[in-house]
C-alpha cells in the first residue's frame, strides 16, 4: 500500500490528494472533486465543488441538470487547490476530456483519466504531460489490443452499406464521444448523407455542433410514416442498449454494428450479436500505452483501472517501477 505521505492515495471514494484535500473522478459524493471527463462513471452528480474543463462542466449540466454541484469552476491555466498546483491538459478521449497534472509534495503527478493518442476529430488531441509519477488507465492493457486505423474501420462500414443497400446499418455507439467520433469519421470519409440518431444522442450531438464540431446533417431515427423501408441503406446511430429494446424493431433487416475497442476480440463481438464489428476505441491501446510510459519516462507508473496485470508485467520486464491502485467503480467502457 501507499504510505500516507504519498502525493495521491486511493480511497473508496476515489483517488485522493491529501495535501490539497480533493479527489480526482470520485465515485461517491465528496466536498472537492476534479473531473477528467464527462462519462458517467468519472463525472458523478452530488459533489459540493467541481473543477473541470468548461466542456466537461457543460456536459455534466446537460446530463444532471444545472444543479449537479454547489460550486463549479472551469479549469484554465494553473490553478491552486488547497495549496496544490493543478493544471488540465487535453486527453483526446471525448470532448472536454483532460489529463490532470498535480504538483504536490515535491512530485509532478499526471493523472491521465481516459485517453487516446489516435486522432479524434470530435475533440482536442492528447498532449504529453511530463511527470514524475504517471497515473494511467489500463482499459485495453493487453498486448492483443492494437487498434487499427479508425478510418479503415469506417471503410468497412461504408462497404457494407454499399453491399446491402436494402438494409439499415445500426451502429452501437455511446452517447458521449463515440457517437460523435463515428459521425466525424464518416464525414471525413466523404459520407455526406443524413445520419440518423437515436433520441438519447440528440442533446450531446447538439452540444458538439454548438462547440464547433461539424457533425453535418443529423436526423432523428423515428418512423414518422411508419414504413420500415424508410431506413433502407441508412446509417443509424444508437446507444448499444437500444438494440435490446423494441426500438430496434422498426428497421428493415438491420445489420448490427458496434463501435468499440472490444470488437477486436471475436467472442466479444459474437456475444453481443454484432454482425459488423468496428474497432474504434477512445482509449489507448497496448502500443500507445507502452509508448506513453517510455516517452514520459516517469519515475513511477501507477495503474488506476482496467487490466493492470499485463502492464505491470511489462513494466517489470522493462525495469520500471509500477504499482496497481485498484480503483473501483469505473466501467470498462462507460455508457
Amino acid at each position: 500500500m501507499l504510505s500516507t505521505d504519498a502525493p495521491l492515495i486511493p480511497r473508496p471514494e476515489g483517488l485522493y490528494c491529501p495535501e490539497g484535500d480533493f479527489y480526482i473522478d470520485p465515485v461517491r459524493p465528496v466536498a472537492r472533486a476534479l473531473i477528467t471527463h464527462g462519462h458517467a462513471d468519472h463525472a458523478r452528480a452530488g459533489h459540493s465543488a467541481v473543477l473541470g474543463t468548461q466542456q466537461t462542466l457543460d456536459i455534466m449540466a446537460l446530463r444532471y441538470g444545472d444543479g449537479f454541484a454547489d460550486h463549479r469552476q472551469a479549469a484554465e491555466g494553473v490553478i491552486e487547490v488547497g495549496g496544490v498546483r493543478v493544471s488540465f491538459h487535453p486527453a483526446g478521449h471525448v470532448l472536454g476530456s483532460a489529463q490532470i497534472r498535480v504538483e504536490t509534495r515535491g512530485q509532478r503527478v499526471t493523472v491521465t483519466g481516459d485517453y487516446t493518442r489516435s486522432p479524434n476529430a470530435a475533440c482536442a488531441p492528447w498532449e504529453p504531460v511530463p511527470c514524475d509519477i504517471l497515473v494511467t488507465e489500463a482499459t485495453f492493457a493487453l498486448p492483443v489490443f492494437r487498434h487499427p486505423d479508425p478510418a479503415h474501420e469506417i471503410g468497412k462500414l461504408l462497404a457494407s452499406v454499399a453491399a446491402f443497400p436494402a438494409r439499415a446499418h445500426l451502429v452501437g455507439a455511446y452517447a458521449l464521444g463515440k457517437a460523435q467520433r463515428v459521425i466525424m469519421l464518416l464525414r471525413e470519409a466523404g459520407y455526406d448523407a443524413p445520419i440518423y440518431i437515436h433520441g438519447a444522442l440528440q442533446k450531446l450531438c447538439d452540444y458538439h455542433i454548438a462547440q464547433g464540431v461539424p457533425l453535418g446533417d443529423l436526423r432523428p431515427a423515428t418512423v414518422a410514416r411508419g414504413k420500415k423501408g424508410d431506413f433502407a441503406g441508412a446509417i443509424v446511430l444508437a446507444p448499444p442498449s437500444a438494440f435490446a429494446a423494441t426500438w430496434a424493431q422498426r428497421f428493415p433487416d438491420p445489420v448490427i454494428c458496434f463501435a468499440s475497442g472490444w470488437m477486436m476480440v471475436r467472442a466479444r463481438a459474437r456475444q453481443r450479436g454484432v454482425e459488423l464489428p468496428l474497432v474504434i476505441s477512445d482509449h489507448v491501446d497496448w502500443p500507445a500505452l507502452t509508448q506513453t510510459i517510455t516517452e514520459l519516462d516517469p519515475a513511477e507508473t501507477w495503474v488506476t483501472h482496467g487490466r493492470e496485470e499485463a502492464i505491470l508485467r511489462w513494466c517489470e520486464l522493462e525495469s520500471r517501477a509500477a504499482r496497481p491502485l485498484r480503483l473501483v467503480g469505473y466501467e470498462d467502457e462507460p455508457e
Binding site: L142, V144, R266, R307, A310
Partner: peptide
C-alpha cells in the same frame, strides 16, 4: 513473454486468434 501471452490468451479464449493479435 509467457506471462503476457497467458494473460492475453485468458482474455481472448482462442489460440489462433490470440496469436494473430499478439
Amino acid at each position: 513473454d509467457a506471462e503476457l501471452f497467458a494473460l492475453s490468451y485468458d482474455f481472448v479464449g482462442d489460440l489462433a486468434e490470440t496469436i494473430a493479435l499478439i
